[in-house]
Nucleic acid binder design. Structure first.
Length: 361
DNA sequence: AAGGTTCCCAACCGCGTAGTG
DNA sequence: TCACTACGCGGTTGGGAACCT
């Protein structure tokens, strides 16, 4: 709109490239190198615009392009980097040798994005969707109260008409998930305690002692993200974050994450969840979810100023022992199902694959 | 086997921006 | 400082392949 086309459309060919066109472009670039895209097609004898030539070269003809399926490590790296960089496909591609931004973008939109949605993860923020969490917490609390205290059907609580089978299935999945879902499990546990007057008086001791042991329990869980094997090393991720911050100096979530990395992770490999769920830091959980402001402040005061609940949960800080082979085998499943399954654990948010989340939304 | 639907990916489009005069 | 050019990026689209009924 208002902008002149990149080239004269008259006589310019569009659509899929032929073998002859590819060969012409390749021959020309081998002789003269790439660049000067505006004049290249004319010099190369191509009836294409420069933009089209550049795209064909960068996305298809470049000799260093890797073909074939994305490996597990590549997929994990994409998720990690997307958590840091967002839709900066070219920046992500720069860290994945042989992959183009277009290829990564397509892979994200056709596979990873759907996978995250299926698991109840917001693909934009990489955090569990708060509407799902609130729903699950609401249901969890109500079901808890109704089954243990009031012993009345959910419908009597006024939620019956709002809740269909899928929602109940989802809530059940969320609430019954054990080690696959440590944050949510703990969150619901806390919330149920807070909302239940009969257990409120146990809350103080839970805060003081059990919180730590619960965290350790979660850390010890072999299916938590502690078992993940990061494709990117710490330095690479730090570089990506630094780059992100240099472009987004007001992104406090990442600013806060930087000191946490060194304090909490203590030089151990950084798991993806630490980066991909920046909004999951305990202090960022709205009090409407935790239901108790002092819980947040106490938890924070028990540690450093930069305490990150998520970091603690997702980091094997108690040991630097390398993963054993059984964990590795589990994590490195080669089939699509195994990869899906691992991805769920990797992101610590497991929802049955046959559950239609989209329908609920 | 045929028609319909969904998935995947190469390619296109428009915008932002760096570089230049 | 401004206008213009060229390039690169991210979002979107179109068509073929794969799958389903």
């Amino acid at each position: 709109m208002g902008r002149t086309p990149c080239c004269d459309k008259n006589g310019m060919k569009k659509g899929p490239w032929t073998v002859e066109e590819d060969q012409k472009l390749l021959d020309y670039i081998q002789k003269h190198g790439h660049g000067r895209w505006r004049t290249l097609p004319k010099n190369a004898g191509l009836k294409r615009c420069g933009k089209s030539c550049r795209l064909r070269w960068t996305n298809y003809l470049r000799p260093d392009i890797k073909r074939g399926r994305f490996s597990f490590e590549e997929e994990e790296a994409i998720i990690q980097l997307h958590g840091i960089l967002g839709n900066k496909w070219s920046a992500i591609a720069a860290r994945l040798p042989g992959r183009t931004d277009n290829e990564i973008k397509n892979y994200w939109n056709t596979r990873i994005r759907k996978k995250l949605l299926r698991m109840g993860i917001d693909p934009v923020t990489h955090a569990p969707r708060m509407d799902l969490l609130e729903l699950a917490s609401l249901l969890g609390s109500s079901l808890y109260n109704s089954s243990l205290q009031l012993n009345v059907p959910a419908g009597s609580l006024g939620m019956g008409p709002m809740v269909n089978d899928d929602v109940l299935t989802l809530a059940t999945a969320l609430l019954s998930s054990h080690c696959e879902n440590p944050e949510l499990q703990l969150q619901n546990l806390l919330e149920n305690q807070l909302r239940n007057p009969q257990v409120q008086n146990q809350f103080e001791s839970f805060q003081g002692n059990n919180l730590q042991s619960s965290i350790q329990e979660v850390q010890a869980c072999p299916t938590s993200s502690a078992a993940s094997t990061p494709f990117l090393n710490e330095t690479q991720l730090m570089q990506a974050i630094a780059e992100h911050l240099s472009q987004n100096p007001t992104d406090f979530a990442y600013q806060n994450s930087l000191p946490n990395l060194w304090q909490v992770h203590g030089g151990h490999p950084i798991t993806a969840a630490s980066f991909t769920n920046p909004t999951l830091s305990f202090d960022s959980i709205p009090s409407s979810i935790t239901g108790h402001q002092t819980l947040k402040s106490n938890a924070v005061s028990n540690n450093t100023q930069n305490f990150s609940f998520d970091s603690v949960l997702s980091t094997p800080s108690s040991t630097s022992t390398p993963l054993d082979s059984s964990q590795m085998t589990y994590a490195k499943g080669s089939t699509e199902d195994e990869r899906d399954s691992y991805c769920s654990n990797f992101l610590m948010f497991d929802i049955p694959s046959d559950l239609d989340v989209n329908a609920i939304m």
